[in-house]
Computed example of a mutant assay.
Amino acid sequence: MTLETLQIQSLRCIQNLQLSTHARWNWLIGANGAGKSTVLEALHILGTGQTWRHGPRHVLREGDAEYLLSARMSDHFLALRRRGEVREIRYDGESVHSAWELLDILPLQSLHDDNSHFVAGTADDRRRIMDWGIYYVDPYYGTVFREYRRALAQRNAWLKKPQGKSPWDSALAMAGEGIQQRRQDYLTRIEPYLQKLWTSWSGATEILSLHLQSGWKEGLALQESLQRDLGQDREMGYTHSGPHRANLVFRVRQRMALDILSRGQLRILGLAYRIAQLLLLREAGFALPTLLIDDFAAELDESARNWWVEQLNVLNVQVFAAVTAAGQIPAGVQGSHFYLAQGQLEKEIVI
């Protein structure tokens, strides 16, 4: 769903900002501290209910009691207000009770400092980004994922005061095996797209592959692994085995990508994976999300920036991207240029 307007009140350095957004490219231009990342973060909060940086108490503009974010999308209106620990979300005048609902109201794909290098980052980052894609192409994944998280929380609570046999192992194992199978199916589907994109960028026919480490001992069913680890789990007070410990591994020429690619190449590989997710979404007939890109030009030379823009133009997706100077924007890209300074809009140019 395409955003048409965005309003931000009392978020970080922004007191009151209103933007009439472009259907394709929205460039946020300004020096560090101008408010570019705050605009992207506002959209992220609207689409997930959560900030991508620190907790709610650090988001509020100094001296203000609450922040308010709102966006209009065609005939729909989404607003989120937060005052202390109290959050109110309304969509077309109706209350939204769960942040899970926001994932379908305003689908987003966010690329920011914490995850732009996810190929070389943490297993947590890679799982989150993988699960984001599965959620939108597998209608049952969200249900299975929530069942697993609920059973995991209950088992971990039981482990702190264990009595008798764990009553949660069967439910945890069933949901966990379901997550593993759905993840594996997803990677099988996305790998050809990633291979094609990597070849288009590198110009070489290097074989690229994705490998999923399940998060429990290879060769064992999850329930067997839970039983094997029960003593250790009781001692530590939490569950060691399961898809919450899974890891996505990228390989090039049968070697770990981390071992043979430069930092810039790893970032391109991560971008190619994100684009592959969008291509798979489009093939499955789903609406594409709005893209949020912080520090668009970071570690990318001109040819890499042009390649990235070319791929996104083919997808015809709405993008919000932050740059420190207009010269970092590839030539010929149509869209809106929003020049920001100290949390305020200085000027807007539509190209």
Rank of each mutant, 00 (worst) to 15 (best):
S225M: 08
R83E: 09
R53H: 08
N26P: 04
Q154R: 13
L60I: 08
G231Q: 13
T5E: 01
G33L: 11
L69Q: 01
Q9A: 02
A246T: 06
D75C: 05
A257L: 10
R81M: 01
G176M: 09
R183Y: 07
E310C: 10
E4K: 09
A257W: 02
D138R: 11
L222W: 09
Y339L: 03
P289W: 06
E66C: 04
T199I: 04
D125A: 10
L102M: 07
Q232A: 13
D75T: 05
E191S: 12
D295G: 03
L261W: 02
G203C: 08
R82I: 04
Q18I: 00
L102E: 02
I89D: 03
A246W: 01
V314W: 09
G55L: 13
Q277K: 11
E310K: 14
V59D: 04
A221R: 14
F320R: 01
W308H: 08
E94G: 04
A173Q: 10
H58L: 14
A322F: 07
L40N: 00
A204I: 15
V96A: 05
Q50K: 06
K165S: 14
E94V: 06
L103P: 05
R82L: 06
Y339C: 04
R228M: 15
D124F: 13
A257C: 06
R53P: 03
D75Y: 02
A79Q: 11
T143R: 12
